[in-house]
Design a protein around this nucleic acid. Structure first.
Lengths: 192, 192
DNA sequence: TGTAACATGTAATCAGTTACATGATTGC
DNA sequence: GCAATCATGTAACTGATTACATGTTACA
């Protein structure tokens, strides 16, 4: 649903080929939407058939293997403006790591989740660091409205990554605590 | 991919009918996974055909309109244990609200997002409040390992809702600031 | 007897993922 | 000529959503 408008937004900022869009979705756009090149090509084709984007390549016939450059049309901008003002419901959180933690609670085997939580912590810290670098490089000066809004989007990514990293750390600390308690009970089993 | 294990976890905690599961996914399980009853019935059917759950209803023939109660089997518990220990990659953030903000930046029409951001703020504050109530009611005493882990899962929900609510507020504050600046420029257009 | 609430299920559709296919350009 | 890279595209599959269908139970 939202991918088409993510593409229209990206094309508003700069006209691009499909692969360039895919790369932009792997970088800057990645902190709020991700998409593979297959999805993007399919979506670009749909958007073109609806007249919301046009191919702006030179007069040569479009061929496979040759880059096709797309730009947003007036109709595309109108559709994007209309969509922006619509209200929707926040998507429900859906996170497999939380299921693993709850499942570990249910089957009583906490240590099994240590590796996956550690891995998630690393990834979130890494992504957090990347966003911080982008912040320092691109948003040390923020004066226009547009800059402020784009900075806010980055800040959402920063906050989410920070929250998950902190949570992973809390899980690992809790696992340590539980392990220490088990060891204590084993060495001195004369508990009440 | 993870829904089947969410169901196995729910059935480990308590055997349930399909509709009971759907209701549990709307409440407690909802803070890390959501699923409709259609999804759950289909998944239960698959799990049963793989021998990971069994129907525990009385000897009567299973009929439409009659509740079917399911329980996890030993094979189901083994499959769940195996899955818990697997590592995976964190899912990419995918949030339409962030696209709306970035799109508003691109087309230069910030006020258009005020309503949708206000609505998201309300929903996130509401959900945050609900989680806090669950916290006070069910986790005022946390002593077993299982309790600690289940509490951690709730805390993830609390942290995410808090982060999004704070972010929505920051967006609204920024919109106010931008609006005030525009008004100032209009009344005194002799800017540098 | 009708209607609301409970309960299970089917079908169609859509978005996203994965694997693979095809062609153009560049540099060795 | 061939390997690497850039670039566009097709096909199959899976998970999630939406709309609809069907039957049971309680009760006014």
């Amino acid at each position: 649903m939202a991918l088409q408008f993510a593409i229209l937004t990206a094309l508003t900022e700069r006209q691009s080929t499909g692969l360039e869009l895919a790369r932009r979705f792997d970088r800057a756009f990645g902190y709020f939407w991700s998409a593979t090149h297959q999805q993007i090509y399919r979506e670009l084709d749909r958007l073109r058939s609806r007249g919301l984007v046009v191919e702006v390549s030179s007069a040569e016939p479009p061929a496979r293997g040759q880059p096709k450059r797309f730009a947003i049309t007036a109709e595309g901008t109108a559709a994007l403006r209309e969509w922006i003002a619509q209200t929707d419901e926040p998507v429900q959180l859906r996170d497999a790591l939380a299921i693993r933690v709850r499942a570990a609670a249910a089957v009583g085997d906490p240590e099994q989740i240590r590796d996956v939580v550690t891995h998630h912590l690393e990834v979130h810290e890494q992504t957090y660091g990347t966003y911080r670098e982008i912040e320092a490089r691109d948003f040390s000066v923020v004066d226009t409205d547009s800059d402020m809004l784009r900075y806010l989007v980055l800040k959402a990514g920063v906050a989410v990554e920070r929250a998950w990293a902190d949570w992973c750390r809390e899980v690992l600390d809790t696992l340590d605590e539980m392990k220490a308690r088990r060891t204590a009970t084993e060495t001195s089993p004369e508990s009440p």
